[in-house]
Amino acid sequence: MRSFTYSRAGSAAEAVGRAAAGTAFVAGGTNLLDLMKADVLRPEGLVDISRLPLDRIEETAEGGLRLGALARNADTAYDERVQTRYPMLSKAILAGASAQLRNMATNGGNLLQRTRCYYFYDTATPCNKRQPGSGCGAIGGVNRIHAILGASDQCIAVHPSDLCVALAALEAVVRVTGPDGERSIPFAELHRLPGDRPEIDTVLRPGDLVTAIDLPARGFAEHSTYLKIRDRASYAFALVSVAAGLEMDGDTVRDARLALGGVAHKPWRDPEAEAALIGKPATPDRFRAAARVLLRDAKGHEHNSFKIELAERAIVRALTEAAERKGASRP
């Protein structure tokens, strides 16, 4: 951890005003301080936004919920309304990290957490995301946890969030305030693919502050699930995760949402895969067909090719569970 200045912002506007090159907002701190200790991030100043009044969970006029950016992950997951109306989201949050970290981490920070790629974390190794132009250590290196979709020849890192996978499936909207005022970003547009600028994770601009995440009214509460597959039973990042939401008409799928985690630089969705489900009977064969659409461009590396088959099986399992699920159940 290098030298930095610390100040606490009294308002969102003040925070945005203090944002300058080399300055970072800190709220939960669980990812930022970790990366600062690892010398991966070296902000010259921290603006503490953790006491801004952005921690509420409120109803929206459209019948959805507004999750404050500074609401803690645990408070979000255990919120009665979230559990009832968006069980997939609650389940996703509780599948991530540990109870302690969920008590600290905020919703806004969760969106902006950085990859867990080994090379990103180890400053003695090449990493285009950490040090543009230094190369990608994972390509040709140790890449068991890396991307099978949407990667580039510059970067095969994955986004580590569970929450974001559910938010992608739910088509949440991210509310941002910044030097140019307020704006809304559809969730699918928030995270980028690495391309030739892997150092940039999101479309946020310097000084942008996430203030809230809006959940639309449709929560797929009756038929949804979040399935996370990892190397131990808890407290590990996903090898593959699936957020699945269905609206059923008897045994027929009326609408479908499907997002994958642990496989790409962002939560992975594909309208064509969802279209392959809509209007079709909820059968394993149909689910598998949809999975294959979603995974049609998947490409494995030396250690992670298993993720392609694993993802397909996980999708079938998650959709099966979602289709079977009757009524909202607490996670």
Binding site: V26, G29, T30, D48, S50, S98, A99, L101, M104
Partner: peptide
């Protein structure tokens, strides 16, 4: 571990358990 990966540093802040290694005292 000093990185929020083990829980040995768990304390209660305002009654809630957190990893004390991943927050600044000033915060």
């Amino acid at each position: 571990c000093d990185h929020g990966q083990c829980g040995a540093c768990t304390v209660l802040v305002d009654g809630r358990r957190i990893n004390s290694c991943l927050t600044l005292a000033a915060m």
